[in-house]
Design a protein around this nucleic acid. Structure first.
Lengths: 227, 227
DNA sequence: GAATGTGAAAATATTCACAGCG
DNA sequence: CGCTGTGAATATTTTCACATTC
């Protein structure tokens, strides 16, 4: 066994999604190639960084020579390779739990299906919601959770319930064999071993923003040139 | 001038918000002190890391000795100190642009006011929405943007509009003198120099999650013990 | 000339480990 | 003792710089 197979660095993984966002419209426009410099400039990232990142996704398939010296990267090949690593080359069935405002906003945004994350099951704790049809799907009662997840081969749960029930639902999802949870509840949830969690927390995002603004204000005062 | 005043590291800044989340309920429970170890364990972070992070927020005010050897940190003092750095000790007036599903979800969640980010202005491009009262505030037309932001001393704009109008609205916000934008549109927006942007993009979050799940699956196969 | 791919160097971030306090 | 605060040691990430390819 070679020393260790070095996993993809977290910062790289985060940038890969950004790269996809930039490449997609270029492909739609018919652009053939894109240089690391050009891609980096759009995102405020150095060209060397972009090349290092891409090395992670291109090295896997050695025949895939998306990058050519003096030319740049083939947009389509690069896009495909990144998608393979990100996982959006295949479909991840998702189950939406909670059809409040957040849930409805997610259903209203059709982009997920296109991005590889179709919502195939909708559940809600409110008995009055059960049976209602929203966006082509019938809302299931919570009692149907386990079976629905199994039969639809759902791998990702989208947790859009109030804070008070978030942990209980998360546990149910884990017990039903989910592999990942996208958590909109403004709290840390505890999950079974092997289950991944990504949080979307508006308050935390606002706090991050307020720190950035404070720093930006401070350096404006002291005259330091912030990027 | 001392070498350079070293800004707070990005990873530290991100963790500070998490610390606040953990400390808050403990204070409500009346807990007096908390050790770096205990705090770290809740979040899967080493105690040394927690102490280093807290050094950043406690050093500023030298009289504030929240941490005591053999005892731990005083919850209330620690909480206050972190809030001062994060910026939630003061109020950041925000303007919500777009009262679609996302906008309504944000209005429905009252937590922001408590967290220091009260929504004081609501705007929408749809003329039929203008004048309507939602959550105690009257929806303003876009033509009122500049004036409303100035008179209400709004520092942060919350962009909850469709992708197609996101850039235009972002530009308007910048022109009106906003300092930060929380962007819900699934695209990169370009802003004036000095304006900070934080993105909340569900597709990107899902992609991140799918990578985590893929990696988790892979190491389950190879038997590597992932955290 | 233009751009990739990549070792080596520099910068950042995390962990170790321990002196010193309460 | 238990726990903080912090230098020193590691580990990770980013940038540099350049040989190499088209």
């Amino acid at each position: 066994m070679p020393p260790t197979v070095r996993r993809i660095p977290r910062p790289t993984a985060q940038r890969l999604s950004l790269y996809l966002r930039e490449i997609q419209p270029l492909i739609a426009l018919g652009q053939q190639t894109l240089s690391s410099r050009a891609l980096g400039e759009k995102l405020g990232i150095s060209s060397a960084q972009v090349r290092k990142d891409l090395a992670w996704v291109l090295q896997s398939k050695q025949t895939n020579e998306a990058g050519r010296s003096g030319v740049g990267y083939n947009c389509v090949k690069m896009h495909d390779s990144i998608r393979r690593v990100v996982g959006t080359n295949r479909r991840w069935s998702t189950a939406l739990v909670g059809v409040g405002n957040i849930g409805r906003a997610l259903l209203g945004y059709g982009g997920f299906v296109q991005d590889g994350f179709p919502i195939t099951v909708i559940l809600d704790a409110d008995p009055r919601m059960a049976g209602k049809r929203i966006g082509g799907l019938v809302v299931q009662p919570m009692s149907a959770l386990r079976k629905a997840i199994r039969t639809h081969r759902v791998t990702i749960g989208i947790l859009a319930v109030p804070r008070s029930s978030a942990q209980a639902v998360a546990t149910q999802l884990c017990d039903a064999g989910i592999q990942g949870i996208l958590n909109f509840a403004p709290m840390r949830i505890t999950v079974s071993k092997g289950v991944s969690v990504t949080n979307i927390d508006v308050s935390i995002a606002l706090e991050q923003l307020s720190m950035d603004v404070s720093i930006s204000n401070r350096s404006r005062l002291t005259g330091e040139g912030a990027v």
